[in-house]
Design a protein around this nucleic acid. Structure first.
Lengths: 292, 292
DNA sequence: GTTCCGCATGAATCGATAG
DNA sequence: ACTATCGATTCATGCGGAA
């Protein structure tokens, strides 16, 4: 099968109109922050940010599949010693457009920007807002499972006491079945806090987010062959990661320099041989602990 | 000097009216979350939450000193598969009352509630919204400095590379000076993300938040002898911690059982001998690392 | 006195079932 | 149809007792 990467140069408000309805599985993007990147994007002032962004989210709502997800990486900046409220207003207005605000993930930055101010500490987190078109959407939770902590070592030895009691106190629904779910597991489901480091020493371009960020959401919300869209492509992190993970992608960028750069880094069509099974099924953990 | 703990039984909307203007240095509270604790607080429905809470924040604005801070611990719950927006609306409305929304801290919970759902992961964070009455407020940053982790060890070794380049690239403002600030320090300023565990199996009372939470903000925003207020006292964590830290405190609680319990645990007046110097000045870190 | 191990439990959320 | 109640799910922590 071939994996495509379609790149467009221009204003995403316009370009998006050419993308068909219900065709995208995941939108992952980090729009220009208000009043930031003045030299490149022209700097959208905080007080007009919501009005500027809403026509775009309206198009995104159209192109997203009903089972798809929109993940918006954003953080309001400090204006005049105070956090702006445009992100709050944006969430409220997007709900009026028809979006469901399913969840707010936190990107807890391991290494945040240094600095010292008299009235605040360093900002070590950003929002990752999850919006959906309907209440039932695709989610592949097993793909992002993480190694369990020390818990497991001690846990599975004690099954005889607590867990029996707790489960026996409830009617029916076998105790044995519940436990058997755990035996074969070295992995646990993650939480809604992502603890990643920002990438610093990059190849010339300063990515707004580390590759681990789109990678995690692409794993979670798409499968190979699905379509991923980033309407504010920037240095192309989302699209590069998507291609590496065998997902089709669309990228839109208004700055010619960025556009050209990504075009050179990415192949328009990339042939891959699909594995018969996704990774998490192949990597079946061994049974190491027995019930006593 | 004597440290007081004034406890009141009743509805904080009413009780607050008896507290003088501009008399409190820090309000730290965790109000009943919407639709939670139905059996105790009566359960405020999400759609009336803002209207219910705004009269209280109006009183808090009055009793707070101009240099004071209001820290609000809150997290919206999931309603019908979607995050509610009442916290967003509350922030917007509080700004209209005259509050400055200075910052949003994150409490990253080390141990969050377990569970598995098809559409979301476990919720591992809560908001700690910082509001102020004016743009210049008291903040004692040195009090919450944290031991430098491995960061410093590795950091100071690399000075010759990254940091030299970085600082030399800037005009003036000596490279040597910046570095020398670090050498004598084993402590670093924290970020706006707090990584604490919830206390679970405690002495009978289940606190909504761990003691470390009010402790951190009391250190940061007050000095000994200042006044701390919690209008939703609950199990009294804020007041107990405040007294231990030699701060006067006021607690308001509507449930008689909770009120009586805290009354037994806390002394109305507590005599303390003030130290001549705050702790952080006494504990001067050793010089351990040299520049190469 | 340390270290290790067992144990209870938590500002949760979903889906099915009952009123 | 719409709301209230209830059972099932699941993991890190800190305490207390044992080695």
């Amino acid at each position: 099968m071939d994996i495509k990467a379609e790149l467009y140069l221009g204003d995403c408000t316009e370009i998006l109109k050419n993308i068909p309805d219900n065709s995208v599985d995941l939108v992952f993007t980090s729009p220009p922050y208000a009043d930031q990147r003045k030299s490149t994007y022209g700097g959208i002032a905080p007080d007009i940010y919501v009005d500027w962004f809403l026509p775009i989210t309206s198009e995104l709502l159209r192109v997203l599949k009903p089972s798809g997800t929109f993940v918006l990486n954003i953080k309001e900046k400090v204006v005049n010693g105070e956090r702006s409220t445009y992100v709050m207003e944006l969430i409220i207005e997007m709900r009026k457009q028809g979006w469901f605000w399913t969840e707010e993930f936190i990107w807890h930055k391991k290494n945040c920007y240094p600095g010292k101010w008299p009235n605040r500490f360093r900002d070590a987190w950003e929002r990752l807002l999850q919006f959906n078109k309907s209440k039932s959407f695709s989610m592949y939770q097993e793909e992002v499972m993480v190694p369990m902590g020390d818990w497991k070592k001690t846990r599975l030895k004690n099954l005889s006491e607590t867990d029996k009691i707790r489960d026996n106190s409830k009617v029916g629904s076998g105790f044995g079945k519940n436990i058997s779910n755990w035996i074969d597991r070295d992995m646990a489901y993650p939480t809604n806090v992502l603890h990643l480091a920002t990438e610093c020493s990059n190849k010339n371009h300063s990515a707004a987010f580390p590759e681990g960020l789109p990678e995690w959401f692409i794993k979670l919300f798409t499968k190979p062959g699905d379509w991923v869209l980033d309407p504010f492509m920037g240095s192309g992190t989302t699209n590069i990661v998507a291609q590496r993970m065998s997902r089709n992608s669309i990228g839109i960028e208004i700055i010619p320099e960025y556009y050209e750069k990504v075009k050179k880094e990415i192949q328009p069509v990339h042939y891959v041989l699909f594995e018969p099974k996704p990774d998490y099924e192949k990597a079946q953990p061994e049974r190491r602990y027995a019930i006593r």
